[in-house]
């Protein structure tokens, strides 16, 4: 596989983030973020609770205005593209009692193309069915989302993101609290997306997974600690800077102690 530097020469950076600062009200959460993700790049976003991982994603989908700096997607400023960024929310951010079925949720991924009133086309129906099939949840297509297991619920939102056919896919903690099978499905999906040239950013607590499965890592704690290949970014020194005293190194493995996380500022302001 080529390293990200090579593909950046062939294509302009998909995602270009310059001196970005953002937050809620007067509280600034992200300070002076600058990095570029190349075409088809896959980035693990790593940092402690409240580091601003979700905030960064909310900025990227346009839910939270920038306080300073700018973001370019394909060289155009944020907001000039309709529907090219897909977002897989944290499981805790979804109202699972909402009366919608698996098919309803995945079809929402097509709404940007279908519009407000028209019926979904045959092509839309096929894309939805294919996405559902790809994630292995065809059995549950007419089930309300509240009746699924955690892993199945995660797959529904992954299927929706695929149905959206995005250029950039953001996944907020997709590996937290799901079964191994779903984790594997999600990781295989990442490889598939890489072949299709989709740019992906995944936030995760799991430093070991970030090191093993991603070629780029963004280490974040309010401000950017480091960005680059895991071997450069995930050094004991830099991890300690990001996580403070909450990190232990045991025989080469990294353990983050977050048994008593502080109130998650990423969510409280949303």
């Amino acid at each position: 596989m080529s390293n990200p530097g090579d593909s950046a020469i062939e294509h302009p950076a998909r995602l270009d983030i310059n001196h970005v600062s953002a937050g809620y009200g007067n509280i600034q959460i992200l300070k002076e973020l600058t990095f570029q993700v190349p075409h088809g790049g896959q980035v693990a976003v790593v940092g402690p609770n409240g580091a601003g991982k979700s905030t960064l994603f909310r900025v990227l989908v346009g839910l939270l205005p920038l306080k300073r700096g700018n973001i370019f997607i394909h060289g155009l400023p944020l907001g000039h593209h309709q529907d090219c960024v897909a977002y897989v929310p944290q499981r805790g951010d979804v109202d699972w009692k909402f009366p919608v079925t698996v098919r309803d949720v995945v079809m929402m991924g097509r709404y940007g193309k279908i519009g407000w009133m028209s019926r979904p086309s045959k092509q839309d129906q096929e894309i939805v069915a294919e996405s559902i099939h790809q994630l292995g949840i065809s059995k549950f297509i007419n089930k309300p989302i509240g009746e699924l297991s955690g892993g199945q619920q995660q797959r529904v939102f992954l299927a929706r993101a695929i149905a959206q056919q995005p250029h950039i896919l953001l996944m907020d903690e997709p590996f937290t609290g799901v079964d191994i099978g779903t984790q594997e499905t999600a990781l295989n999906l990442l490889e598939e997306l890489h072949k299709q040239g989709v740019t992906v950013m995944v936030s995760t607590h799991d430093l070991n997974m970030a090191a093993e499965r991603f070629k780029l890592v963004l280490l974040l704690n309010r401000t950017m600690i480091a960005f680059g290949p895991p071997s450069d970014v995930l050094t004991p020194e830099k991890i300690r800077t990001a996580f403070g005293g909450k990190v232990l190194f045991i025989n080469g493995a990294v353990v983050v102690d977050e048994c008593c996380p502080p109130a998650d500022q990423d969510n409280s302001g949303a």
């Binding site: 989908v61 529907d83 929310p89």
Partner: peptide, 10 residues
């Protein structure tokens, strides 16, 4: 149901 999807759909 999903304000974040609403934002990505502009």
């Amino acid at each position: 149901f999903d304000p974040i999807l609403a934002a990505t759909l502009r």
